[in-house]
Amino acid sequence: MFDSLQIEIIKEVINIGVGKSAEVLNTMIQSHILLEVPEVKIIKYGEYNDFIDYFEDDNYAVITLPFNGDLNGFSKLIMSSDHAAKLVDAFIGKSGVNMDMDSLRIDILSEIGNVIINAVMGTLSNMLNLHLDYIVPSYEQGARDIIIPEEMIKNESAILFAKTQFKIEEFEAQGNFAVFFRVKSFNSLVEKIQIYFDKNFS
């Protein structure tokens, strides 16, 4: 599907995107936030079960940004509920706020997720010259089966999976970034990457 060079290009794009989101997040909180992309993987339809096994916690908070246009799919920021709570703590402080207040947590996590996803998707579309239309992001929480959208399974799609690490001084939150593409989109993505490569490296 992708050769190693193309994977490297995707890695770089994600890296730049995540870096941009870190810049934004740093202006939003007092603590210094560090985001890393240690790993980018392409997961094929047949590997979905292995992919889902990677998520071992009971509960997850998932922020989804659906997109269409040159590519069709969903971007998702996936965090275990524990890590999501830590991340929210970093933004509003620990004192006086009960993390069980879903409404508050959803609002803040939606925004944090939005910053990260926007930076990555914005970078992806800018660098690869993709025209994407977005639908308003949504927030979900529940068991790990909410991670893969049912629609994706039906359409035998692939996942571009980036494991992202947040480090916020005393708070340590960890999250995962994943982009689900429909198979058709993959071909467009490969094409766009090839154009980007030809333009910049050959």
């Binding site: 939003m28 940004l65 997109f67 933004f91 509003i92 508050l104 609002d107 803040i108 939606s110 925004e111 939005n114 996803i117 926007n118 998707m121 914005g122 579309s125 025209h131 994407l132 239309d133 977005y134 639908i135 308003v136 992001p137």
Partner: peptide, 15 residues
């Protein structure tokens, strides 16, 4: 970025 067709932006009420 919105003016260049970028993804939706969310500002939470609390922050």
């Amino acid at each position: 970025p919105i003016f260049k067709g970028g993804p939706p932006v969310v500002f939470s009420a609390k922050l």
